[in-house]
Nucleic acid binder design. Sequence first.
DNA 1: TTGTACGCGTTATCAA
DNA 2: TTGATAACGCGTACAA
Lengths: 344, 344
Amino acid sequence: MSEKRRPTLEDVAEAAGVSRATVSRVINGVRNVDPKLHEIVWQAVDATGYVPNRAARSLVTRRSGTVALVVSDAVSHDDDPFMRRFFADPFFGRIVGGVMSVLRPKGVQLALQIVGTQEARTRLVGDLGQGQADGAVVLSLHPDDTLPQQLCDAGIAAALVGRPAQPVPISYVDLANDAGGALAAEHLLGRGCTRLGMITGPAHVPASQDRLTGFRQALARHGHAWFPIAEGGFTYESGESAMLALMAEHPGLDGVFVANDLMAQGALMALRTRNVRVPDEVAVVGFDDSSAALDARPQLTTVRHPLEDMAAETTRLVLARIDDPSLRVESVIFDPKLVVRQSA
Amino acid sequence: MSEKRRPTLEDVAEAAGVSRATVSRVINGVRNVDPKLHEIVWQAVDATGYVPNRAARSLVTRRSGTVALVVSDAVSHDDDPFMRRFFADPFFGRIVGGVMSVLRPKGVQLALQIVGTQEARTRLVGDLGQGQADGAVVLSLHPDDTLPQQLCDAGIAAALVGRPAQPVPISYVDLANDAGGALAAEHLLGRGCTRLGMITGPAHVPASQDRLTGFRQALARHGHAWFPIAEGGFTYESGESAMLALMAEHPGLDGVFVANDLMAQGALMALRTRNVRVPDEVAVVGFDDSSAALDARPQLTTVRHPLEDMAAETTRLVLARIDDPSLRVESVIFDPKLVVRQSA
DNA sequence: TTGTACGCGTTATCAA
DNA sequence: TTGATAACGCGTACAA
C-alpha cells in the first residue's frame, strides 16, 4: 500500500538505543525490564509509528491471532429457507456485536465462516487444525450437526452459543430457556389468564424443548395439569397457522405463549384476522425480544434473550481455552428477563 | 493443536526428491516446471498432507490473504436503531454469502469489521494500511460516512456495495435503482392503476432517491405529471404511518410503490387497518425481495435486489485491485427484476 | 529447468 | 537485566 517501508522492531530499537530483544520484551509486557527503558522504548514506538507485524509474530508463536465465528447449518446457505430466517433475525448481528466486544480490545481478528455442507465442515476443521484460526465461536443451527463433535475430536479450542443438540464434551453458553418459559407462564397467570395455550418451536431444537418444559412446569405448579400445544417452525407463517389451529380447537383460550417473536408476530396476525382483541381477549407472550417484538401490533410482551452478553461470554471461553488448552469443558447459563409491552 | 509438527515445504521436497524451491514453484503454479516433476510433487503433497503456512507466506509476500468486510455506520452499533434494522434485514447475510462465494475458492479469509465511531474508522484505516487485510468490501450505511474518502486517501484496495453517498473516487457496485422504480411504475400502470402514490425512503439515501426518480420518470412518460409522496425511514413503522398519511390525504389512490419491503409490510398493515383490500382496491409494490416480502399478507410483489451477485462482484473488484493497484476506479451496475406475487 | 541462498519481522534461547 | 543469535516456513533473485 504505502510507498515507504513499515517500521520494524529494529527501527524502534535503534531509535531507543537498545536491542531488538528488549523492544520485543517491552511490547509483549515481559517482566524483567528496566522501568526506565520501558518508557524510552514506548516513546520510540510512538515516534516511529511502529506496529507489530502479525505474520512475523504468527510465524514464531504459531498463533494466528484470529478467532473464527462459525455458522454451521445442515444444508447450504443459499437453498435453505431457515438460513434466510436465521439472518432475518437480528440474531446474527447481535452475536457479532458480542463477539467483537471482547475480541477487539485484545487485537484479535474475527474470521467469518459459514459452513452448510458436510464437506465444508470437514474442510473447516482441517483449516482450523492447521492454525487458520486459534479457536472458534460456533453457532450450530441444526440438531444433526456433526461439527461440535468434529471440533471436539480435533482438539480445537471452541465453544458454542447455545446448548449442543447432542451431548458432546464441548463448552457452551446458553440461556435458561426453561426459566424463560416459566416467566411467561407466571406473567400470563399473574394477569388473570386461566385458559392457556402454547405455540412451540421445532421439537428437535433444544431451546424450543426447554421453553416448553419451563412453561409446563410453572403451570403445573399452579395446578394447570394440561394445556393445548401447537408446533411451529420458528417462522412467521408457522406461527400464524399454529394460532389459527389453536383457536379452532380451543375457542376459549385467553393466553398464549409463543416460543419466538417471529411466530408470535404471525399469531397476532391470525388473531387480528379472527377479530380477537389482544391482550383483552387473548394475551400473547413471545420470546427473544427481537426486532419483530417491536414491529408487532400490538407490541410484544416477550422474554429477553441476552444474546450479546452470551456471545461475549462464549468468546471469553474460547480465548481462555486458547491460552490454556488443558482447561476443562465448561458451560455458562444466562437468565432471561421478561419485557412487558402491550400484548400481555 | 496437534502433537506432531506440521509438514513443511522441506518435507514435501524430501518426499518428492526435489528441492524446496521446486515444490514452492509447483504449488504456486509458476511456469517453467517439468510436467513430470509437477505430478511427482503433487503426489508428495498429498502423501505428506502438506498445507502452506499462511504466516510464513504472508511474511515474504507481504500479503495477508485476508479481505475485510467492513460495515460502517454513523454511530455505534449498540445504540443505533437503524443498525438493528440493518441486521434485521437479510441484507447482511446475503452480502456475506455473496462475498464468501468468491473468496472461498481462492482461499482468502473474510475478516469482519464493524465500525461505528469516527475513532474506529480511523483505526480501521490504519490497520488496513498496516496490512491487516489486503483489501476491503465496504458497506457504508450513512450519508455522512467519511470512510470511503479515508480509504481512498490511504490508497487501500476497496470497493463499496452501493453507490457512495458523496462523490468519492472509489469503486462500487450498485443496483439500477431508478430502473427498479420504473419497473414498479410500469407494473402498476399495466394492471390498470391510475391514481398512484409512493412511499419513499430517507431523502439522503442515494438508493432511495434513485427509486423515486425512476418511478417518477416512468410515470411522466405515461403522462402522469404528479403523484403524492410520503417519506419513510425504511422501517416497518414508518411505512405504516406513511401509508395512513397517504390514505388520509388522497383517498382515491389505487396503487402504491413503497421503497422497501419492510415499509411495504407496514403499509399493508395500515391498509388492513382501514379495511382496504389489497390488491383489489389498492395495489402495492415493494422493493428488495427480502424475507419481509414473503412474510407479508398478501405476499408482496416487489423489485428484486440481487444482493448476492452484487456482493460477489464487489469482492471481485477488490481482488482485482489487490492484484493490480494501478487499476482504475470502476463501477458495475446491476439490473433489478420484478417479482410478481399477490399484492400487485 | 532446477537448486542455492538470502531475507521477510518476530519470538525465544542462551550467554554475558 | 540485556544483547547476540538462532529458528519459524516460505518466496525468489541468482547462479548453475
